[in-house]
Design a protein around this nucleic acid. Sequence first.
DNA 1: CTGAAAGCGCTTACAG
DNA 2: CTGAAAGCGCTTACAG
Lengths: 341, 341
Amino acid sequence: MAVRLQDVAERAGVSVRTVSNVVNDFPHVRPAVRERVQQAIADLGYRPNMTARFLRGGRTGMIALAVPDLSVPYFAELAGYMMRAAQGHDLTLLIEETDGDREREVLFLTGSRSSTIDGLILSPLTAEAEDLTGPSRSVPVVLLGERTYDEPLDHIAIDNVRAAREATAHLLHLGRRRVAAVGARPEHDSRMADLRLDGYHQALAGAGVARDDSLVVATPWFTRQDGYDAVVHLVRSDARPDALFCFNDLLALGAIRALADHGLRCPEDVAVVGIDGIEDGAFSVPTLTTVAPDMAGIASRAVDLLVARIGGRDVGVPVDDVADFALVVRGSTGGPGRSGS
Amino acid sequence: MAVRLQDVAERAGVSVRTVSNVVNDFPHVRPAVRERVQQAIADLGYRPNMTARFLRGGRTGMIALAVPDLSVPYFAELAGYMMRAAQGHDLTLLIEETDGDREREVLFLTGSRSSTIDGLILSPLTAEAEDLTGPSRSVPVVLLGERTYDEPLDHIAIDNVRAAREATAHLLHLGRRRVAAVGARPEHDSRMADLRLDGYHQALAGAGVARDDSLVVATPWFTRQDGYDAVVHLVRSDARPDALFCFNDLLALGAIRALADHGLRCPEDVAVVGIDGIEDGAFSVPTLTTVAPDMAGIASRAVDLLVARIGGRDVGVPVDDVADFALVVRGSTGGPGRSGS
DNA sequence: CTGAAAGCGCTTACAG
DNA sequence: CTGAAAGCGCTTACAG
């Protein structure tokens, strides 16, 4: 059924070696021969069998990106950037949704699919160090986000403490004094939440504002619904915040929705800041002030690093890379894009 | 480096055939032998080489989903459903972002990656019939969405005319008489837009409301920004709509943002309906009334169908499957989740 | 119930 | 510059 190299060779009257040379653009093939081979390829509609090539070469040309949930806009947008970065290296990107499930986070590392890819970019929630190192690991890994390990592993993230500090400081500069922190102690990523809480506390301290633990709201996850529930909690508990620093944009979007339901104006009564820089926030009502990580930079850095590791190039000891971010001021803190209603 | 079947065989003192039998759970292996083999597998940390298995078996165990843009929430959410559907068949789902680029839409069908997958689920914007049929096509394809072809091809979509009719009728039932249609004649999918425009016109006719072409707004794409711009256009043109039927949720979300910027209350001054049922609409201000296709059903149907084709099972002639949808009434047309401000 | 051997389609030393 | 041949790691008729 399938047209093989051999078929092309026979038709062109040369050896498979020569056909292979033509297919792979090797030099030292006489122009006349090259042309005859190319004609045969066209006639037969030959396309190389990647599987065979991979088996022979030991590489698959595929890398995987494993994120918790694609319907989280941050991960969906990041996946797009990763895809483009991978294309730049002629790699196919496989995307895996893990739901934070430990087994699925390391599926490509230790599971039956491990021979399918050359490397993995993982945004882990529950993977343990032993899953990522040890003999069962078969391919290089680059880690994304805040879950950190004692073992030396390549890792890329923004400086969460600083990001949180700047987000909170922005609210304090506006004159807000009762700034709530929304997103503490989530079930899925307490490390990241702890760092952002640190930054929040540092900003308060820097502005000479006393802590008030009734303004710190824990959420189970980082969803819109969790942000909504957090505001309901704040309203009921009579904590009276005049601003919300939400640990991500989805929490912030859910919080804005809840403020509207409770007759609280945003930003007049309660200003809101998030983190992630997802596109939704540019069109919400009001538009959302956010700390936007440099997703393109994170993606290209992650892929570059992984490619270097795959190639066995000496990249030095495992890298702990700090990605850029920018504070984007919009309607939810009085910038452009106010609700207008 | 890698542990092979052969290594396991040597350690267990059996032939590779026997090891293969154990690995693949074949019967007729004596319990004692089976145990010895399993011990050897554990000792050596053997994992089967998928690439070799694929080369031998002619299948890769992977299918691809090709969508225009993952940062479009509808596609991101759909991808999640597809992933779960694929898992149910023990298939790995490869996701490809095409940007509507013809070459990338058929990359897995005709390009160098074609031998990587067993089948493709494609949401096409620009692919031509000749790309999808003809001798260059190497694997089965299931098409999603409204781009249709004369050739017989498997295809799944909602009934767009009916969906648009019901969305528009909902606005008319509310007593609105100046219902605008937002999303006509986009560059990327005029077929789908035409169907939705048809449904819009049918609903108007059914309610005895005269058409007014100044209320039909063309948009280049289906983005939030396009929805925003459409409202700006309507405001400037003095068309004075009292409702908007937006051809998708992103347009609707952008439109709501623009209404706010122009001091128009939603739903009081202008009610809004979208199509897609993306999660964003459940938390926007106001929440968004939408026509929600049964994404889970579409995903499982698409994967089931593709699996049947891959298996060569007789599924009959190419299927033209009509997926379910539901009208979800929310704040933007006076349902629960009003802005509250 | 198990062993020896062919072959999936490629790439690449090894000769010439 | 090109040909004949081995081998990547697996599965599976074919014997026994």
